[in-house]
Amino acid sequence: MNMLQTLWHYAPLLLSGAGVTLWTWLLGSVLGLAIGASVALLRRLPVRPLQWVLRIYIEIIRGTPFLLQLFLLYSGGPSIGIRLSALTAGVVCLGVHAGAYFAEVFRAGFEGLPKGQIEAASSFGMTSFQILYRISLPTMLVAIFPSIVSILISLSKETVILSIITVPNLMYQVQSMTVETYSAFSGIAALAVFYWVFVECVARFSALIEYRLTLFARRDSAEVRA
C-alpha cells in the first residue's frame, strides 16, 4: 500500500480523531474561561480563606505538569470515588488546567482597569452596568486578548496529551494507524505539519484581530469609518 492508499483507508478514523481533538479543545477552552473568570471574580471578594484556597489552586495547577494532573484525576480519581471516562476526565482536566492560567490573566486585567476613564463615565451619571459593558469590559478584553490567545494555543497543544489516557483523538488515531502499517514516521510527520499549520493559522488570525482591536491606539493608520 502506498501512502495515499493508507491515508484513504484510515481517513474516517483520522477525521473522527480530528473531531475529538477539536471538540476537547473547544470544551476545555470554554470550561477554562468560565473557571478562570469565576476564580478571578471570587478572588476579589474580601474573604481570606477563600483567597487562600484559590491561590493554592492556581499555584498547584501552574506548578505541576498537565500529564500528572491528568493521571491524578483519571487513575487516582477512582480511589476517592471519582470515576470519569477518559474523554470526560480529559476535558475536565483541560478546563481546570487552563482555568488557573486564565484566572491570572483576568486578575491582571482587573488590575489594569482604566481608573480615570471610569471616573469620567461616572461623572456623566452612567450606571455601574453601563460603565462595565461600555468602558471596563471593552478595554480589559483588548488588553488581555493576546494572553488569552496564547493560552488557547497552548491548550490546543495540550490536547495531544489526552491520547496517553486513550482519548481517541488525532494523535491516538495516528499512532494506531502507524502501529498497523509499520510506517511510524510518515504519520507522525504529517501530524507535526498539521499542528504547525494549525497553530500558525490561529496565531496569524489572532494577530489580525488584535490589529483590528487596537486600531485606536495606532497613531499612524487611517481614520475609521463612523
Binding site: P114, G116, Q117, E119, A120, A121, S123, F124, G125, M126, T127, Q130, R134, I135, P138, T139, V142, F216, A217, E223, V224, A226
Partner: peptide, 26 residues
C-alpha cells in the same frame, strides 16, 4: 460637566462616539 487633567477620553471610541456616549446612555 467635569473636565479632567488627564482628559480621560475613552480610547476605544472615536471622537464622535466619545461625545455621543453619555447622550445615548444617560
Amino acid at each position: 460637566g467635569f473636565v479632567f487633567q488627564q482628559f480621560n477620553l475613552w480610547p476605544h471610541m472615536s471622537v464622535i462616539q466619545n461625545v455621543m456616549e453619555p447622550l445615548l446612555r444617560v
